[in-house]
Write a protein that binds this DNA or RNA. Structure first.
Lengths: 242, 242
DNA sequence: CGCATTCTTGACACCAGTCAACGTTAGTGG
DNA sequence: CCACTAACGTTGACTGGTGTCAAGAATGCG
């Protein structure tokens, strides 16, 4: 089944898996599900007993603050497990939704826990996955707290493109990024006009092109410089650097 | 040894441990080390082979941005394992330093990995710990990106006090918080004068008192309201709520 | 006691947020 | 296929909050 290939390929970007682990991971049960744009997979306060694996499209995690404003936390592409944390933390402190039409596979927590008990190295690989997740959150804290709008946007584009590329989802210097400028603002903690202005500055430097949910990186070195991007935190050392 | 009691008490705040796991955790080797203020435990780029457990004092994790400015990511009190992630991620993407004089215990990664292989439930408990860590980072993203200075400060105080209290480190409505206003600014993404002004606003509402590295919560309900604080994300359901 | 760090306060400039209008695009249904 | 509508993007005017700079006061440490 496709799901298992996706999980394995993703884990093998940072973990060495033996025959035993691969076989055990392949035995995981999974059910597929299609999502329409904006559809929530889980909401704040839910206690899911399955975790999702992205097969197609893009998913996003977000908080909702009292004012009603959303704060997006991270975005997930095919191969990612956006709510793997729910295996060991019962109640969701954030929500997960589809940023575009998407397909996911759902894996029961019980199966995962059994797998990890019987085959700890497989668990370590998924654990590592959740730790990289945390590293991405840390980078977001710094980006949103210590950088100017243009740098925030540049850093965000770098990260998304780098991750898409590592997963094999970038073609000819471009990748899918189905976000509106409002959503970019709700990710980076800046207003819509600021996003618009920062975008135009980046376009003017010929570093990127961004339209209709597609990001094209034209000058990686310049973009990385503007965004002060260092991919170390993504821990994809097995992937060829840009 | 004291170290093991601290670890166990911390893990038991959210995980049920059996006799076997407790015995296995107690068998972990550890060496103590004293730290002076501002001393770094590990730096960005390091590849440590031990993880720290805080015994006394406060430790902080931080990024350094190109301008030289620091961005603090989280703070850790006795019982915490601030760099447990290093067990499965080789290179440090951030640094760890002592915010006050402190004492830590160092546990070899090799021992931890062996323990988790032989006793998966013990690993699950530590894994859960790292997942709560990630939840705290998510909360910081939202706090620093979507809230005004006063609310940021209030939320931060709520979190620190709540965690201190859960760990048994709060007395008479007060806990240690050995940070200068500059460091608060480097945590919340605001300038020193903004911290000073926000602090005075909070004092005026009689919600808190803060001086000489000591935080006193005088009106929890008000502070929580200003900071829009909901402790769910700390996943300390076994702890009595405020 | 004296120096260094920390905190407070003020003046000022400027960036970024809000509001608003307009132009464009995309999607829907007739 | 076209028309309509809603969503999205761009731009401008205006305002206010926040950063920067700077001076002075208070605190703590040696």
């Amino acid at each position: 089944m496709l799901v298992h290939d996706m999980i394995l390929r993703k884990l093998q970007l940072h973990s060495d898996l033996g025959e035993t682990e691969i076989a055990a991971l392949r035995a995981l049960p999974a059910t597929e599900r299609a999502l329409v744009v904006h559809e929530d997979v889980v909401r704040q306060g839910d206690k899911p007993n399955v975790s999702a694996v992205v097969l197609e499209g893009m998913l996003g995690r977000y908080h909702t603050v009292a004012s009603g404003r959303r704060q997006y936390l991270s975005f997930h592409i095919p191969g990612d497990m956006p709510d793997s944390q729910a295996m060991f933390i019962d109640v969701m402190d954030h929500a997960l939704c589809a940023m575009s039409a998407a397909r996911i596979a759902l894996v029961p927590h019980a199966s995962l826990r059994t797998l990890f008990k019987q085959c700890p190295p497989a668990g370590f690989a998924v654990w590592r996955e959740t730790l990289v997740d945390a590293a991405i959150f840390r980078a977001a804290i710094t980006n949103n707290s210590a950088c100017a709008p243009r740098a925030r946007l540049a850093h965000f584009f770098c990260e998304q493109y780098y991750r898409a590329r590592a997963g094999g989802h970038a073609k000819q210097g471009a990748c899918a990024l189905p976000l509106t400028q409002i959503q970019l603002g709700e990710t980076l903690g800046i207003s819509l006009p600021s996003v618009s202005r920062a975008l135009q500055q980046l376009r003017q430097t010929r570093a990127i092109e961004f339209e209709r949910g597609r990001l094209e990186v034209r000058d990686w070195a310049r973009l990385a410089a503007i965004g002060e991007f260092d991919p170390t935190y993504l821990h994809l050392s097995k992937v060829k650097r840009l």
